[in-house]
Design a protein around this nucleic acid. Structure first.
Length: 803
DNA sequence: GCGGATCAC
DNA sequence: TATGGTGATCCGC
């Protein structure tokens, strides 16, 4: 026992412990508590390794700072003055382009996960659970205020309510009336028929009015209404920010958190006042490192960021200092940008130390398999494979390789990844490679153009008589044999399968509340006079002149055209205008009845207006151990997502005439979407009409659509009932596929092989576009970040909710 | 194109 | 207290 104590004590200091921990035999322990002690030491060792790495990273940052300071020392007054002039010229331009006419809202669920945990408490279980994630909630409530609202992950969303506010001005009171939800089921039953009680029962009418609240027509009132509805629906509170752009709205929503809201009125001075003492760390995009670097320059608040703009332009990269300048002026995007195409997809896993090559290759293959499934779900193929390794000292390394023909299957990805891994293993030989994390990423996806070639190649290939049933559960034997892969079926039980069996899941992490740093330097005067007279810099979209060949989805003929519009016209002609118009239009009907029938009155709760500043201690009662026992759903879901390998729509082959027609219609939906996006861009540049609700017919429809969390495909219904039905079907599909797994997979691989082969063949004709470089929009460097939540992500949330 | 870093959620 | 996983972007080669 004395020995134990000794070791435990020494474990608090660094280097010594490391050695002791590794040679526990040397410590002369008696074997009795050896394992336990080892564990303790290992924990400490792990901790110190982690800590050591943190220190190392810290030193690197310090070096960066040192370098920067040295650079700063060399700057002459002359240089600084010159920089000042240049930057201020830009400031004038930026000021001119300041747009305060939009009203952007940022909604942020308070302590999302903690609250969910809490709500999953058995006592709260009877309460209705009507939300799966922000995007669902969203679709149910937020879309009413902005059909183009932008969900950011699971617990945040941006809305542009400018247009809603205009409409709302003319709304009668009833349309703005909402009812307090009640916990009583009897009340629900009583009013469930949704009939207009008002006429028949005046006394009930009174009660209705008493248990309801009417929201006004101002932006604040709208946001209160949204938050009220969210809370009524989910029992979770939300915070919100209202401001002229996304950047400000986001920072603003942070102000009165939790369960509060804040507005920056559309006046320049109000914006600057807000920023004045705001710590830069509060700005999205400025993290720990940037904060530290700026702090070294004496910059802590946003107004200081402005004051030092000249210096910053000399010390930081163009992108960085321009971003700083935008921040310090309170400029951000005034419209919500659509998510762009995904740029990469990856999967990674952390584990306890792994040091045998065998295990490492095994994990690598498994990662490739998972990734391949994810890629195929989205129909993606990429040319670059990146292997990520984190060694036991927490040092991260990435190794990438770009291949000529794009990859998407497990075998293809693994072929590249295993080489990269092999190189790393060799590089440390004869020592073992000791890692705690491995990841595989695929990027460099085919462009739209390249995809079209592929599509064309596939269709022409199939048209030539070699029929392949993409979705057939029982493939023709000949195909199966022809494309069979050598060792495919004989994969042994994977490393993680073995490990998983023995492992249990951990609890959720608490979210931390940062305390705001103290405010220094109170400056009151902005030093520049903003002079007018600058020409507007219009950012012209560079249209690259590349020859484009498209395949008409209707007649399957090549169309070489200069523009998408031309192609569009051709397709229209081809279709004779019949099919397109026929697609289902989902109209939005904001009938007040629809709004009010959701929540039914019983007794008066509290006034919605006063929900502003009360601060319930959400975290206080969180019960970490409250994990419910019903795993059945989540289990089947998980299995399902691993098994399912549904082909993306555009690779599906119609099996009969009506399917062909549907397919055409579907493709119609795809093509115009792209086209309209391009033209919309142009439209925006010239007309300055941002975020007008859907200049495009197809997108308008899209907004009304629910997305199945299982198959990730959009469902053309607004009814939750039928949506749920679909999800059920989807889940069952997973089970069915699981049952037919052995028969299913050979089909999949063989089909992928075909498409690969064909793709490779057509590769020679492709007109690649070398000037593909991503164009950065300056203004929205980090704000507009289009983050794609992977399906597994939402799956996770859904599971939690439905548990 | 590669690799390391930073950042957000 | 000991932290993941996913994706994007930037910077310097």
């Amino acid at each position: 026992m004395d020995d134990t104590k000794k070791i435990c004590n020494t474990s608090s200091s660094d280097g010594v412990l490391l050695r002791m921990g590794l040679n526990d035999n040397k410590a002369g322990m008696q074997g009795l508590d050896k394992e336990k002690i080892n564990k303790i030491i290992m924990e400490a060792t792990k901790g110190s390794r982690f800590y050591e790495n943190e220190l190392k990273k810290d030193r690197q940052v310090n070096q960066r700072i040192e370098k920067m300071m040295q650079l700063k020392e060399k700057i002459t007054t002359q240089q600084l003055l010159k920089a000042q002039l240049q930057v201020d010229k830009l400031v004038v331009e930026l000021e001119q382009s300041r747009n305060l006419s939009r009203i952007i809202v940022h909604i942020d669920m308070d302590a999302f996960y903690a609250a969910v945990e809490m709500r999953d408490n058995p006592e709260l279980r009877e309460k209705p659970i009507a939300v799966g994630s922000m995007s669902m909630l969203v679709r149910e409530i937020l879309a009413e205020y902005d059909p183009n609202f932008m969900p950011m992950g699971l617990d945040e969303a941006y809305l542009n309510i400018t247009e809603h506010l205009e409409e709302r001005l003319n709304w009668p009171e009833n349309k703005r009336r909402f009812f307090f939800n009640t916990e009583s089921t009897t009340e629900n039953v009583l009013f469930e028929d949704n009939t207009p009680l008002i006429d028949d029962h005046p006394e009930q009418r009174d009660q209705l009015v008493e248990n309801s609240v009417v929201f006004g027509t101002s932006a604040e009132e709208v946001v209160k209404e949204i938050r009220f509805r969210i809370e009524q629906k989910t029992q979770l509170t939300a915070s919100a920010g209202i401001a002229p752009n996304t950047l400000l709205a986001k920072m603003c929503s942070d102000r009165n958190k939790p369960n509060g809201q804040c507005r920056i009125v559309p006046e320049r001075q109000a914006v600057l006042d807000f920023l004045k003492d705001l710590p830069i760390r509060k700005v999205p995009g400025i993290g720990k490192v940037t904060e530290k670097m700026l702090k070294a320059l004496g910059i802590v608040t946003c107004s200081e960021l402005y004051q030092q703009r000249a210096l910053l332009s000399l010390l930081f990269s163009e992108a960085s200092w321009r971003n700083f300048l935008d921040i310090s002026l309170g400029l951000g995007s005034t419209h919500l940008e659509k998510d762009g195409e995904r740029k990469s997809m990856s999967t990674e896993r952390t584990f306890s130390e792994m040091n045998t090559a065998e295990d490492q290759y095994s994990v690598c293959r498994e990662l490739c398999r998972d990734l391949a499934q994810d890629l195929q779900k989205e129909g993606l193929k990429g040319k670059t494979v990146t292997l990520k390794l984190k060694n036991v000292n927490f040092e991260v390394k990435t190794r990438a390789s770009t291949v000529l023909s794009s990859v998407s299957t497990e075998e293809e990805i693994f072929a590249v990844a295993k080489d990269l891994l092999g190189t790393e293993i060799d590089s440390v030989a004869p020592h073992p490679l000791r890692i705690r994390l491995m990841g595989v990423r695929v990027s460099g996806f085919l462009s739209e153009e390249e995809k079209k070639y592929q599509q064309k190649s596939i269709t022409s290939f199939l048209k030539s008589g070699k029929e392949i049933g993409f979705l057939r559960l029982q493939p023709g034997k000949s195909n199966q044999e022809y494309f069979r892969n050598k060792s495919e079926a004989s994969t042994t039980r994977s490393f993680f399968d073995r490990k998983r069996a023995a492992r249990q899941l951990n609890g959720e992490n608490p979210s931390l509340n940062e305390s705001v740093g103290k405010q220094l330097f109170h400056d009151r005067k902005s030093s520049t006079n903003f002079v007018e007279e600058t020409k507007k810099v219009t950012d012209l979209q560079n249209s690259t002149n590349v020859c484009k060949i498209f395949t008409c989805p209707v007649c399957f003929e090549d169309q070489s055209s200069n523009s998408l519009e031309e192609l569009n016209r051709h397709i229209d002609v081809c279709l004779g205008g019949t099919l397109v118009k026929d697609t289902v239009e989902i109209t939005k009907n904001y009938d007040s009845k629809e709004n009010t029938c959701n929540f039914l009155p019983q007794f008066k709760n509290k006034n919605a207006d006063e929900c502003q500043k009360n601060k319930p201690d959400l975290l206080a009662g969180t019960d970490q151990s409250a994990s419910t026992s019903d795993n059945s759903i989540s289990n089947s879901t998980e299995k399902f997502t691993q098994i399912i390998s549904d082909k993306p729509h555009r690779e599906r082959q119609p099996s009969n005439l009506s399917d062909i027609a549907k397919n055409m219609c579907m493709k119609q939906c795809l093509f115009p979407k792209r086209i309209s996006r391009d033209s919309e861009d142009h439209f925006e540049k010239t007309e300055h009409t941002e975020e007008n609700s859907s200049s495009c017919f197809f997108e308008a429809k899209e907004d009304s659509v629910l997305v199945c969390p299982v198959c990730n495909s959009e469902q053309k219904t607004r009814s939750l009932v039928s949506f749920n039905r679909h999800v059920d079907v989807c889940l069952n599909k997973g089970l069915i596929q699981e049952l037919t797994e052995k028969k299913y997979f050979p089909t999949k691989t063989s089909n992928m092989e075909i498409s690969n082969r064909v793709g490779a063949l057509s590769g020679g004709q492709q007109c690649t576009n070398p000037s593909q470089g991503t164009k950065r929009s300056g203004l929205t460097t980090s704000q507009s970040a289009s983050k794609k939540a992977k399906s597994s992500n939402s799956k996770h949330t859904i599971e939690m909710f439905f548990k």
